[in-house]
Design a protein around this nucleic acid. Structure first.
Length: 297
DNA sequence: TACTCGTGGGG
DNA sequence: TCCCCAAGAGT
């Protein structure tokens, strides 16, 4: 007969987190003192779909240049897109810039604490809004990302992978959250850290897992329960690839300006190249000036 | 809901 | 080599 866990989930995860959490810039008290909620907001924007190791140097550079929302709000879109460099998904740079303007105009330059106010900002969804409210302000909300969804799928549901994201994920995370605000914040961080470093997507290290004794998936023998997530579209030859080539060329060009004909000139499918340029323009990531293309002013 | 949107490191 | 995946959000 299996014995009940000696310690409740929150305490177990909190102890593990205290001993094993990575020392990341946005977890340091000085970071919050220096940059306030703006620092957390910028870090979370960059962490949307970009790995931690790649974010760290860019975050430092960004906050050195723009240490507050109002300072970023008066930058040009070109400066922002260029500073974003190769972080990927460059629309995020424009949305972050827009959010900085909104924070300056609507909230007097201070990133708001209220989740609904955060959700109303450009580029901020369920994850980022609650991450700011929890990790900077210390409030009690469910922070649901790919890591927490995977940990719940395994530990609670006994499945090898989570299903597609759904609104219901928020309620499931809430159900696990301790009542105390501070403990809830640590619980959110610990679930994410566990998913990022132990309960990983590909090769989970169950032998190092603090909650292995109560994991439904491990108890079931780590079955492959299938994966109903949608696979990422092929990148090679895609519109995204062409967009990436075009934008990189403009970032690296003198004055961030090039003759349109010279951009991605060796891309064989000319029609696809032109469509990519059109879509970048409609996103506001580039603009046309006569025969030239340039980053938006 | 389904699809799009970059870039690079690791298995 | 190739494929997978990464602190998601907007449409």
């Amino acid at each position: 007969m299996p014995s009940a866990p000696a310690t409740d989930l929150t305490t177990t995860l909190t102890r593990w987190y205290d001993a094993h959490a990575r020392d990341l810039p946005w977890r340091r008290p000085e970071f919050h003192e220096q940059y306030g909620a703006w620092g957390t907001l910028v870090s979370e924007f960059m962490l949307q779909q970009t790995p931690v190791a790649r974010v760290i140097p860019h975050l430092d550079a960004w906050l050195t240049r723009w240490p507050s929302a109002p300072s970023a709000a008066i930058a040009s879109p070109a400066d922002v897109v260029n500073q974003w460099a190769n972080l990927g998904y460059p629309r995020r740079a424009l949305w972050l810039h827009r959010a900085a303007i909104e924070v300056t105009e609507r909230h007097g330059g201070t990133v708001p604490r209220d989740v609904d106010a955060l959700l109303a900002l450009s580029g901020i969804g369920d994850y980022t809004a609650r991450a700011v409210a929890v990790f900077h302000y210390g409030d009690r909300h469910p922070v649901v990302d790919t890591n927490t969804r995977r940990v719940i799928a395994r530990a609670v549901d006994g499945r090898s992978q989570p299903g597609p994201p759904a609104k219901r994920d928020l309620d499931r995370m809430t159900a696990l959250l301790p009542d105390d605000e501070h403990r809830a914040a640590v619980f959110n961080a610990a679930m994410m850290e566990l998913g990022a470093t132990v309960c990983t997507a590909r090769a989970p290290r169950c032998e190092a897992c603090p909650i292995a004794d109560r994991c439904a998936w491990l108890a079931a023998g780590r079955p492959d329960t299938g994966d109903d997530r949608r696979r990422q579209a092929k990148y090679e030859g895609s519109d995204r690839q062409v967009r990436g080539i075009v934008l990189r060329a403009l970032r690296e060009a003198p004055e961030h300006r090039m003759l349109a004909d010279a951009v991605a000139a060796d891309w064989v499918d000319r029609g696809q190249r032109d469509r990519a340029i059109d879509s970048l323009m409609s996103d506001g990531l580039i603009e046309a000036d006569g025969e030239a293309l340039l980053l938006p002013r």
